[in-house]
Amino acid sequence: MIVKDEENSIARCLESVHDLVDEIIIVDTGSVDQTKHIARHYTEQIYDFKWVDDFSSARNYSFKLATKQYIMWLDADDVISKPNRKLLKQLKDHLDPVVNSVTMRYLVNIDKSGNPSFIIKRNRLVKSSCQFKWKGAVHEYLEVSGPILHSDISIHHFKNKTDNSTRNLQIYEKQINKGTVFSPRDLFYYANELRRHNELHKAIKYYTLFLNHKVAWKEDKIASCGRLADCYHLLDDQEKEREIIYKSFEYDSPRADFCCRLGNLFLGKNQVNEAIYWYKYASRLTWDKNCMGFYHVPSWTWLPHTKLSICYYKKGDFKKAYKHNKLALEYLPYDSGLINNQKLIKNKLKNLT
């Protein structure tokens, strides 16, 4: 782990994993709170690393300190739940040593019911002898090769604090000032930082530069189309928003989140039949479990059915509205809004008979 000022979360993280691993290595990049003091309850292997505006440097340093056959990495606001602890234990006991890397699902934006908004696959466990390296000063990634096992283990990400800092943006801009030539991935993540800080026109410029790179990763290109669509949406340019959504289809078959976005655009114009087409399309898609891209959970589960229920309600087809609201409830059985909608539509059906 690399950490800084994580006194509010590090104990929760380490408590969820400490008895499943053979060593815990903490690399601190400048904490001024109780982070290191808390970590010492779980390990004596705590090291200081002078921050050099480069996350990969810190992570690669932490990997060099590891002495076991495999290395697993976590952030301080990650947690392994009881069911996933069991899966991790099984993996540890039965992992085929031919495997170089194990992916685990990263669950992001957890709601009060424990449902994530996004699921991302990440290489979480790697063979030490492969000496895989982290790449990228910001939004770093672990470059792996060889046999990869896609596990069913999930890591829950619980963000304790809102990060409004410009730290990442400043790192990128320092690199620009030094004349650093950005990789395609750097262009993508720099554009993300610009968008996050509402520099929308500049973000559009860098997303476009990224999309023009032939060697960029397909999944980042698809994600870039989604972020570009966000920018155009915020600028109220629906024509460009729709255009970039369709462009995402050039890189792979349509994804449910983009289909739902098209449905939203048509529904916003009260073009209900066109909206129904795209929500139906989304509802029939199935996610490729080996895909390493961003999985927007609502779009692949309950959201298309909720929207279809609204569309059919607008058309006065209460039978279909009831059907799709019921399908949405199968994913979110305790959602008060869906429960109330079901009662409302049921009353409409009674009145018709």
Rank of each mutant, 00 (worst) to 15 (best):
V3M: 11
S9N: 15
R12F: 01
C13A: 12
E15R: 10
I26C: 08
T29H: 07
S31D: 11
H37I: 12
A39M: 09
Y47A: 02
F49Y: 15
F49K: 12
V52Q: 13
L65V: 08
Q69F: 04
D77N: 13
P83T: 06
L87F: 01
Q90F: 00
K92Y: 08
D96K: 10
D96E: 09
P97W: 00
V99C: 13
L107A: 15
K112W: 05
I119V: 13
C130L: 10
Q131N: 15
K133T: 10
H139D: 11
V144A: 04
S151K: 08
N164K: 10
S165Y: 00
T166I: 07
R167P: 00
I171D: 09
K174V: 02
T180M: 09
A191Y: 04
L194H: 02
R195S: 11
R195G: 06
H197R: 15
H201G: 00
K205Y: 12
Y207K: 02
N212G: 04
H213S: 15
H213F: 07
E219W: 09
E219R: 13
E219F: 10
Y232R: 12
D236F: 08
D237E: 06
Q238C: 07
E239T: 11
D252K: 11
L265M: 09
V272I: 15
A275D: 04
Y277P: 00
D288E: 12
G293Y: 03
V297A: 09
W302H: 14
L303V: 03
S309I: 03
S309V: 02
Y312L: 08
K314C: 02
A328L: 00
A328G: 01
L329H: 03
E330M: 15
Y334E: 14
D335Q: 07
D335R: 06
G337E: 13
L338K: 11
L344C: 06
T353A: 05
